Amino acid sequence: MINGVRVFDTVLDGKNIKDTVSRNSADFWKPFCKSACWNFSHERVHSLSDLEYFFSKKIKEEVIIFSGHGDENGFYLSNGECFNGQDLKSFPKKNHDKIVIFSSCLIGKNEDLAQELKSYFSAKALFSYRHLMYDRFCFLNESILLTSIEHKFNRGRQSFTLNDFFDFQVETDFMKNMNGKYVKLHPMVMT
């Protein structure tokens, strides 16, 4: 059962480093979580030290979403630092076994990186994108995914398997070309 979502949001506009508000996925996730009767919390992160600080605290929510720029090298923070699962102290055991989503481009294209991040978090599952993505399509895919996971748990299931994810991909396959033309593979991958 999903008890809540914690979003770690970073600023996207690299041209204006002083801009601390252009990215705010909380505007989507807060009302979505409220309607789903899930808890919600949100943190703005700008550096690796910010991540390390927030990771040292107990994360009560079942789902962690990282919202910002990414590529095959990792998740980029406002100050230009890149998080790839090798940069920080060990992720505390008190925060293991979460569902982790990287709501950012191209992390899922690098299977080694996705596996490294899953291992770093000792995550139940890690979801990421293999394509360039617009925010609105990330929100759409992720909200359907989390709703699918919640439905599995409400039916007495204890886990969301790779087969369940394949079902999700089949059910949402019609959306793969909304984000970009001529896309042959579902944009989201599960590690």
Results as ranks from 00 to 15, higher is better:
Asn73Leu: 13
Ser47Gln: 06
Val100Phe: 14
Glu72Arg: 13
Lys15Met: 08
Val45Asn: 04
Asp71Pro: 03
Lys15Trp: 14
Ser49Val: 12
Glu61Phe: 07
Phe83His: 08
His42Lys: 06
Asn73Glu: 06
Ile59Arg: 06
Ile59Tyr: 02
Cys82Trp: 11
Arg23Pro: 03
Trp29Asn: 00
Glu62His: 06
Val45Phe: 12
Ser49Cys: 03
Cys37Glu: 14
Phe40Ile: 10
Asn24Cys: 08
Glu61Gly: 04
Ser41Cys: 04
Ser47Asp: 02
Phe102Lys: 05
Lys98Ala: 06
Phe66Trp: 12
His69Gln: 04
Glu52Gln: 15
His46Phe: 15
Phe83Gln: 05
Trp38Thr: 04
Ser41Met: 05
Ile101Leu: 14
Ala26Phe: 11
Cys33Ile: 09
Val63Leu: 07
Glu52Lys: 08
Phe28Cys: 06
Lys18Ser: 14
Pro92Tyr: 09
Ala36Gln: 14
Glu43Trp: 13
Lys57Asn: 05
Val100Trp: 15
Ser90Met: 01
Lys58Ser: 09
Pro92Asp: 01
Phe28Val: 07
Leu77Gly: 14
Ile17His: 12
Gly74Met: 01
Asn95Val: 09
Phe83Leu: 04
Phe66His: 00
Asp13Val: 11
Phe75Val: 02
Phe32Tyr: 15
Ser67Cys: 02
Phe32Gly: 08
His69Gly: 07
Lys89Asp: 03
Val63Ala: 07
His69Ile: 10
His96Gly: 03
Lys34Ser: 09
Ser67Tyr: 15
Ser22Tyr: 09
Ala36Glu: 14
Phe55Thr: 03
Leu88His: 12
Asp50Ala: 08
Ser25Trp: 15
Lys94Pro: 04
Ser41Gln: 03
Asn16Tyr: 15
Cys82Val: 12
